[in-house]
Simulated scan of single mutants.
Amino acid sequence: MAKLFSGVTRQYNDFKQLNSQDKKTFLKELLINNSLYIFMVIAIIAIQIISPKFLSSSSIINIVSLSAANLPIALGIAGCIILTGTDLSAGRIVGLVACVSASLLQASGYANKMFVDLDTLPIFVVLLLAIAIGAIVGFVNGFCVSKFSLHPFIVTLATQLIVYGILLMYLMIGTNNGQSISGLDAGYTGFIAGAAISIGGKGIPNFVWYAVLITIIMWFIWNKTKFGKNMFAVGSNPEAANVSGVNVSRTIIMVFVLAGIMYGLTGFVESARIGSNSAATGLNYELDAIAACVIGGVSFVGGIGKIRGVIIGVVLLRIIFVGLTFLSIDANMQYVIKGLIILVACAVDMRKYLVRK
Rank of each mutant, 00 (worst) to 15 (best):
N13S: 13
Y335G: 07
F321A: 02
S59F: 05
K16M: 10
L213P: 08
G91A: 07
L343R: 07
V255A: 04
G275M: 10
D117P: 03
F115K: 05
A69I: 09
G95I: 05
V234G: 03
A289I: 10
Y335R: 10
Y335K: 11
L129I: 15
L27Q: 08
A347R: 07
V255T: 13
R308W: 14
I32L: 12
V41P: 06
A132E: 03
D87C: 08
S328D: 13
S198V: 10
I320K: 02
V116H: 08
A291F: 04
H151W: 10
I221C: 04
Y335A: 10
G187K: 02
S244M: 11
V344R: 01
A345Y: 02
I199V: 15
N62L: 12
E29C: 06
Q106E: 10
F220K: 03
Q179T: 11
F227K: 01
N70W: 05
V301E: 08
F15M: 09
I295T: 05
Q179Y: 13
S35C: 09
V125P: 03
M231V: 14
S35D: 02
R273S: 07
V125S: 12
R92E: 13
K53A: 13
T25H: 06
F15R: 03
V116L: 13
V301K: 11
Q334A: 04
K226Y: 08
T281W: 05
M40E: 07
F268N: 02
A196K: 13
G309R: 02
I38N: 04
A2N: 14
K28L: 14
G194L: 10
A132T: 14
I311K: 04
V140P: 01
V314M: 06
L287P: 01
I192L: 08
A279G: 13
Y170T: 05
D330P: 00
L287N: 08
A107H: 12
L27E: 04
